[in-house]
Design a protein around this nucleic acid. Structure first.
Lengths: 121, 121
DNA sequence: CAGTATCCTATATGATACTG
DNA sequence: CAGTATCATATAGGATACTG
């Protein structure tokens, strides 16, 4: 009863670190992209426009570490590496895809609000 | 047919700017906090532990500009200012709250995955 | 009380170039 | 091809002091 309503907002709450990691622009885009299925590094790089190899690598590493993405490296020349959402990753895809859909659906209202706001300052 | 499957990931897609804004740690926490209802700056500051006044102000400004939060300032001394999700903001609260719930529900798996990953490097 | 003003640092992001 | 290595920079974030 004396607990805060939303533990998630507490500094000591472990899930907050997870939210911080997951509530991130690049993470969201990569996970949404991977929602289309297993794909190679290069394809991912093309899909998520404007992402640098360094950032993509870092994002994928973090996702892999958290058990959200699986990495498959084939011993071929030239190398071939594929990434795929894990079962856990797919559970994350749902809310992130929902967030993406929100952005797509409400962008007109957001843009309109920005114009109104900017017009007054 | 020649369109990419996910426009959202395109650099020229306006909704991508919105996703970038909304897929953010502080934004998520503030919107989740405001899900509890209209509240004062100070309360918000206490709820979202560790947020500095500067960051909270900035986050609220951005949300206000995008039409997601309404600001109510009362001409009193000392000043009293309250913030509340707008109708549009409440539509955003749903997917963000879902993301928060995901973090809460799956944190054990995430932590376990991290341990396994770190054990090997 | 609700911010704003400052100052400073960490980290994220970018842009390439380079290699197994 | 799939990264890693580097270098440079911007910008977010943090700490704090100050004021209408």
């Amino acid at each position: 009863m004396t607990q805060p309503e939303v533990n998630l907002l507490t500094e000591t709450c472990p899930s907050r670190t997870s939210l911080a990691r997951v509530a991130d622009k690049w993470t969201a885009m990569v996970v949404i992209a991977l929602g289309s299925g297993r794909m190679r590094f290069g394809v991912l790089r093309t899909m998520v426009e404007g992402i640098s190899p360094k950032v993509l690598t870092g994002t994928l590493r973090d996702l892999e570490r958290d058990g959200l993405v699986a990495r498959y490296a084939y011993a071929e020349v030239p190398p071939r590496v594929e990434y795929e959402l894990t079962a856990l990753g797919r559970t994350l895809h749902t809310p992130l895809r929902a967030l993406g859909s929100w952005a797509e659906e409400h962008i007109p209202e957001v843009l309109a609000a920005r114009e109104t706001y900017d017009a007054f300052r």
